[in-house]
Every structure is written in structure tokens, then in C-alpha cells.
């Protein structure tokens, strides 16, 4: 499965600002706590595909806890195109 978004759970302080700016509203508060005692956010597998890689969450996050990757380009059949990244 493609995962365009990843959370560094050790950095997340559970402030939830990312949840407020996600246009797809797919970021939710998990039931997990990190080692600092903060509840951490997540994107559940069943909605992961919805992520558009807009990176609004990473932009608003005060703790640099979110990484976002652009989805690779696809052809009409949905196959991942042969892309090269510099």
C-alpha cells in the first residue's frame, strides 16, 4: 500500500493542529501514547489512499513530526509510471 504520509511518533505532541488543516480530514487521534506521554495522531490504513500529498499538515505542525511524499505519477490504467527523481 502507498503511504504518502508518515508521522514521527516520538516527535508528535498530540496538538491536533494537523487534523484541523487536512482537506480530506483523514488525520485522527490514535489511542497510542508515545514515550513522552503524548497521544499521537495517525492516518488509518483504510483512508491512507485518500491523501493528496498536499503537505498542509506538515506545514502547520510545530514539531516537524510529519513527512509527506508526492504520489508517483500513474498512467491511465493506474500503473505507476516509470519516474525518476533527481
Amino acid at each position: 500500500m502507498e503511504r504518502p504520509i508518515a508521522f514521527r511518533e516520538d516527535r508528535c505532541k498530540g496538538c491536533a493542529l494537523c487534523m484541523t488543516v487536512c482537506p480530506k480530514e483523514i488525520i485522527t487521534m490514535s489511542s497510542r501514547f508515545n514515550t513522552s506521554g503524548y497521544k499521537v495522531v495517525e492516518v488509518r490504513d483504510e483512508v491512507m489512499e485518500t491523501c493528496t500529498s498536499c503537505a498542509a499538515c506538515a506545514l502547520i505542525c510545530p514539531d516537524y513530526a510529519i513527512s509527506v511524499w508526492r504520489k508517483p505519477a500513474r498512467d491511465k490504467k493506474g500503473e505507476v509510471a516509470d519516474v525518476h527523481y533527481g
Binding site: P4, D10, R11, K13, G14, C15, A16, L17, S36, Y38, S53, C54, A55, A58, L59, P62, D63, Y64, I66, S67, V68, W69, R70, K71, P72, Y85
Partner: peptide, 22 residues
Amino acid sequence: NGKEAFTLPGVLADIPTHYCPG
């Protein structure tokens, strides 16, 4: 495998901050 849509500047230390949540 995609390019990062958001990258942290290299001059920023990649360490946890002392700031409060939010």
C-alpha cells in the same frame, strides 16, 4: 519512492523542541 512534498531546512537542527504542545 516519491519525492518529499515537504522537506525540513538543513540549518534546522533535527531534534525535539522544548516547546509545549501546539
